[in-house]
Amino acid sequence: MSKKPAKATLTTAMIEEQTAAFLKAGGTVEYVVKGKSGQFASTGTKQINLKANG
């Protein structure tokens, strides 16, 4: 039987270190209000017409 490699665990200290490095490198953090997506939709909604035009 082969053993699965141990899954790396992400600790709070690691997250804090990564966040500090990101901010030190000039990164910024934006606040997104609850209920809003942080993603921007580049196109409108896509609707598919299943009925053939006839």
Rank of each mutant, 00 (worst) to 15 (best):
T19N: 13
A20F: 06
A20W: 06
A20N: 14
A21Y: 00
A21H: 01
A21T: 08
A21N: 06
A21F: 00
F22N: 02
F22C: 02
F22R: 03
F22E: 02
L23D: 01
L23F: 09
K24S: 10
K24T: 07
A25K: 15
A25N: 09
A25E: 13
G26N: 07
G26T: 04
G26K: 15
G27E: 06
G27M: 12
T28E: 10
T28F: 01
T28M: 05
E30N: 08
E30L: 05
Y31K: 15
Y31I: 10
Y31R: 15
V32F: 04
V33N: 09
K34R: 15
G35S: 11
G35D: 10
K36E: 13
K36N: 13
K36F: 06
K36H: 06
S37I: 05
G38P: 12
Q39V: 11
Q39I: 11
Q39C: 07
Q39A: 12
Q39E: 13
F40P: 01
A41C: 04
S42L: 11
S42I: 05
T43F: 11
T43Y: 04
T43M: 12
G44D: 14
G44T: 13
T45A: 10
K46S: 03
K46C: 01
K46P: 00
I48K: 15
I48W: 08
I48D: 00
N49P: 06
N49D: 04
N49F: 01
N49A: 04
L50P: 04
K51T: 09
K51R: 14
A52M: 07
